[in-house]
């Protein structure tokens, strides 16, 4: 019908390559490493750097699905409560005589069910927002954890269970290996598969996605279930590291996770951002916490820092988007 040729090969552009938010995060990590090593002469060695990850990686598993959720323009603030509930159920199951391996399975199942329930409510009742659904279940899940264990703690796990929180494979902490492995998988899934493309489509325009044959409800269900499952994995590592659990564990984890995702450059307006950014942000916040711990900065100041980091990174992303919009309309 026509003779027009349309270009379909894009030249590599150094400018585009270096204008990515991820470089900013890498610079931040370098800055934090410099700061940490000036604070403590013991920081800058292989053991210390890898061991540090054991202190902050537990909640980072939730970052993976949270990136997907926030790209879809949704939010899940019930993940901290899901961690608590699945951890408590695992401990109670074990102490009721269930073998530990089975107890871990139950833990993962409970987490996944919590996430599935969130997703189900969202998909079934279209006019309910994720804020109200996960706010309700946030209270509900932790409430159930309290019903089960009241104000007691539960522990006494077998020795081998401490491997999750404390164990090494060779010289590398097990948690780091699992995290990096999952990181690779999640990066590939989000960036290179149909499923990932559908997530971006839903976040950018849910109606057009549906009209294009994207199974919006199914994608949402899967992603929210994943969030629950990852929260349960967090519960396993956290419980293993602490040796026992209580209903108030993982309090405010949702905030840390959302802060990491926002710092990773994922826009709360949906449809934008990369998994890699959020993974780098995990290390930014993690090493920052660890470094401040080295000089005995109290935990409360960390609260302030994470809160400010969250607000600043969202502000920067918002202003960047506004700037881009202005540029476009003035053309």
């Amino acid at each position: 019908m026509s003779t027009r040729t349309i270009n379909h090969i894009q030249d590599f552009s150094w400018k585009r390559f270096f204008l990515q938010w991820e470089w900013m995060l890498i610079l931040l990590i370098i800055a934090i490493f410099t700061m940490n090593s000036s604070l403590s002469p013991y920081f800058l060695n292989y053991i210390s750097i890898t061991d540090a990850t054991m202190t902050f990686l537990d909640k980072a598993f939730i970052v993976f699905p949270m990136v997907m959720i926030m790209i879809m323009r949704e939010i899940d603030i019930s993940v901290g409560s899901t961690v608590a509930l699945s951890s408590v159920v695992m401990a109670v199951a074990y102490n009721a005589g269930v073998p530990m391996v089975l107890a871990i399975m139950i833990c993962l199942l409970v987490g996944a069910l919590c996430g599935l329930f969130n997703g189900f409510l969202l998909v079934k009742y279209k006019e309910l927002s994720a804020v109200i659904v996960t706010l309700s279940t946030m209270i509900l899940y932790r409430g159930i954890a309290y019903m089960i264990l009241e104000n007691q703690s539960s522990g006494g796990f077998p020795m081998w269970f401490s491997f999750f929180g404390w164990g090494y494979v060779g010289t590398i902490p097990f948690i780091l290996i699992l995290f990096l492995l999952l990181a690779v998988i999640f990066v590939l899934v989000l960036q290179k598969t149909i499923f990932g493309r559908h997530i971006y489509a839903i976040g950018s325009n849910p109606i057009a996605s549906r009209f294009s044959g994207v199974k919006v409800d199914r994608v949402k269900l899967i992603v929210f279930t994943l969030a629950g499952l990852m929260a349960a994995i967090t519960a396993v590592f956290l419980t293993s590291r602490m040796g026992s659990t209580r209903p108030n564990v993982a309090n405010m984890y949702e905030l840390d996770v959302i802060a990491m995702v926002a710092l990773g450059g994922i826009s709360t307006a949906g449809g934008k951002g990369k998994m890699l950014g959020a993974i780098l942000a995990v290390f930014v916040i993690g090493y920052l916490q660890y470094g401040l711990g080295l000089i005995n900065v109290p935990a409360q100041s960390l609260l302030v820092i994470i809160g400010l980091l969250l607000i600043i990174s969202v502000t920067v992303t918002n202003l960047r988007m506004k700037g881009k919009l202005k540029k476009k309309t003035s053309n």
Partner: peptide, 29 residues
């Protein structure tokens, strides 16, 4: 604009959104 296109996407991704399975193997694009 509301029901068909994703305006902030490239033309390419818009054209292929409804048929991604054709350019993929086991879900990989």
């Amino acid at each position: 604009q509301a029901q068909s296109l994703i305006l902030q996407w490239e033309i390419k991704q818009n054209i292929t959104l409804a048929s991604l399975a054709q350019y993929s193997k086991n879900g990989w694009l």
